[in-house]
Design a binder for these strands. Structure first.
Lengths: 262, 262
DNA sequence: CGGTGTGAAAACCTTCACAGCG
DNA sequence: CGCTGTGAAGGTTTTCACACCG
């Protein structure tokens, strides 16, 4: 959400819910697979299973796009592929620049999923002069000095940041100043951008942390008995001086006493 | 979100809302940065800005953990770091295996964000015999034949799949059979897993597609004139008969953290 | 019949606004 | 007085269940 200000008033009527938009690529992928197997039609039930959602949700999602199905039959695969592609804006070509060609940047450059979906890697950019000219995934790396020129020449509006966190904000600023209006950020930082610029972030370690949360819960309650349930406080990293703010209410159940020995 | 299986309706467990859990790592990151700068306390307003959310949301989130703040003052940084870490289960060590050591797997292996947050790369596994023994990010790659043994020996419960889509499901099956109960999937496939196993997916091209959607909308209305490509339907692969509800106009915005540091 | 499309209900999440504590 | 903690309001997303049509 835009933290600063200026929210877009949550849409006029023509709007497709964000949650639905986020699932369209999923449907598209499943449909593409069906298309490759020359399956002509598919029911909401089948498609939902292939996409990993439930069928009511899928039908509701599709209802925002229009009535593209046939009652009693299902959906025409090819037709739906086209409609969703169009809705997502994938019927046009999107040149993309990737900034920061480390392992991750290289992985992204070589990722087949881009090319196959309307995206074209217009340029790979890195600040290290030693990288300049070196081909990665068949594309020569260009030096970041030329960032503005590259973006202008190719009319790039989407940028991918795969740099270290420390330089992500300045790379972002340069991209935005050069005309990029959508950014996919892999650096573990909150980017600040002017209004009108979209940022999506992918943080690898955040995903793992969410898994850890659930994993911990499993250990604590699944096994029929009380094996090792208590989240007993291990050594706290290092407590300042605060005496564990006492805690009028508590956290989970047991509650953690005061701060720990260091 | 979990793919494949049925949801745990957040039923009886010690319910912290999913949305809140997903933000805890964000807060943790911001807090860690403050901690490194030896900032002793922080207000919800400041911390929210640093994490890219709004302060009401942050306070609400924290309220699920307990009352860890001090009215009129704010939150003790060190103490909060500990509480959130504990809540996320990061006060313990989580051995992780990464399967599929291509560019992406290598990037993950070398990603600092793991080690720094309670995760330990226990093993790198690849099916290519040529890779076996080769060190990646300082860790020797092991052959996938030994997958089960490695998982058992290290007590690994979290697996990362960075293989091609074609083999992801079988890798997943083997991981699960060997005892892994949380999976982070980078392969563009829907994994099906038995109940009790969590799957989170990261799909690079999906994120880009969502950006493209918003980008397309911007082009269609923001600028005073038409400079950009329009959503005119190109050759439709093969249309049934429907005319389709034409394109629309604006859309909501995704999440644009627009934060200004002091 | 079988399966879509959709109002209506339920669940979930965010934002507001302010009481109340330090 | 300032800032947290939180009921209540408002919004969004999911699920239900069934009318309706090919």
């Amino acid at each position: 959400m835009a933290t600063g200000r200026t929210h877009r008033p949550a849409t006029r009527s023509r709007g497709i819910p964000e949650a639905t938009v986020a699932r369209l690529p999923l449907y598209l992928r499943a449909l593409t697979a069906l298309s490759e197997r020359s399956v002509p039609t598919v029911s909401s039930e089948e498609l939902a299973a292939a996409a990993g959602v439930n069928s009511a949700k899928l039908r509701k999602d599709f209802s925002y796009l229009g009535s593209y199905g046939t009652r009693g039959v299902g959906y025409d695969v090819e037709y739906l592929v086209y409609q969703i592609s169009r809705e997502l804006g994938l019927t046009q070509d999107w040149p993309v620049v990737i900034v920061g060609i480390g392992n991750l940047g290289a992985a992204l450059a070589g990722y087949g999923g881009f090319a196959s979906r309307g995206f074209r890697v217009a340029a790979l950019i890195d600040a290290d002069p030693a990288m300049t000219g070196k081909p990665v995934a068949g594309i020569p790396v260009q030096h970041s000095d030329d960032l503005e020129k590259i973006i202008a020449e190719d009319g790039v509006s989407i940028g991918v940041i795969a740099t270290p966190a420390g330089v992500a904000q300045q790379v972002c600023d340069r991209l935005v100043a050069a005309g990029v209006t959508s950014i996919l950020n892999f650096a573990p930082t909150v980017l600040s951008v002017p209004d009108g610029v979209d940022v999506r972030k992918v943080d690898l370690s955040i995903e793992l942390q969410i898994l850890a949360f659930h994993e911990q819960r499993k250990a604590g309650e699944e096994p029929g008995d009380e094996t090792a349930p208590q989240p007993v406080p291990p050594a706290v990293p290092q407590a300042a001086t605060r005496t564990a703010a006492d805690s009028g209410r508590k956290g989970p159940d047991g509650d953690v006493p005061a701060v720990m020995p260091a």
